[in-house]
Design a protein around this nucleic acid. Structure first.
Length: 117
DNA sequence: AGCTTGACTTTGA
DNA sequence: GTCAAAGCCAAGC
C-alpha cells in the first residue's frame, strides 16, 4: 500500500479514515473530529465513528487510538471485550482513568498538524 | 425510494 | 460552566 494518495484522489471517505488511523504513531491518540477535519469538515466526525464501526473488516486499524474530543473512550463499548480498548492504550504507555485518557493533550496527535502539506 | 440512526464536533444561548 | 440545535455522509430498516 502506498502512503497517502498521490495519484489516487478518489477514495471512499472510509478508506481515507482508515489510512489516517493507521498512520497514528504508537502511544499517540487522536479525535474523530481531527481526522474528519483533516479529510474534509469537522462535522463529518460522525462518519469517522461510522467508519470505525466497519473497521472490523480491516485488520491494521488501531481504532483504540481514536477517541472523542474529550479524550473519553466512547468507542470502548464496541470492542470485543469493552475493556480491550483501555488495555491496548495502557499497553502503549497511555494512562487511562475512568474510561478517559489521562493527559490527553500530551498524547494527542493531530493529523492536520502532523500530516499537513 | 425515503426516513432514522450513528464510536462526533461546533456554535449559540 | 452546562444545555440545545445544526451539520456532515453512509448504512440499515
Amino acid at each position: 500500500m502506498k502512503s497517502l494518495s498521490l495519484n489516487e484522489k478518489h477514495k471512499d471517505f472510509f478508506q481515507q479514515v482508515f489510512e489516517v488511523v493507521k498512520l497514528i504513531p504508537k502511544g499517540r491518540v487522536t479525535s474523530y473530529g481531527a481526522i474528519a477535519r483533516y479529510l474534509s469538515s469537522a462535522s463529518a466526525s460522525r462518519m469517522v465513528g461510522w467508519a470505525m464501526n466497519t473497521s472490523h473488516t480491516h485488520e491494521n486499524v488501531p481504532a483504540h487510538r481514536v477517541v472523542n474530543r474529550n479524550g473519553l473512550l466512547t468507542g470502548k463499548a464496541h470492542f470485543s471485550p469493552p475493556s480491550l480498548m483501555e488495555e491496548l492504550l495502557k499497553a502503549e504507555g497511555i494512562e487511562v482513568r475512568e474510561d478517559k485518557i489521562v493527559d490527553f493533550e500530551k498524547y494527542y496527535w493531530d493529523p492536520t498538524e502532523e500530516l499537513k502539506l
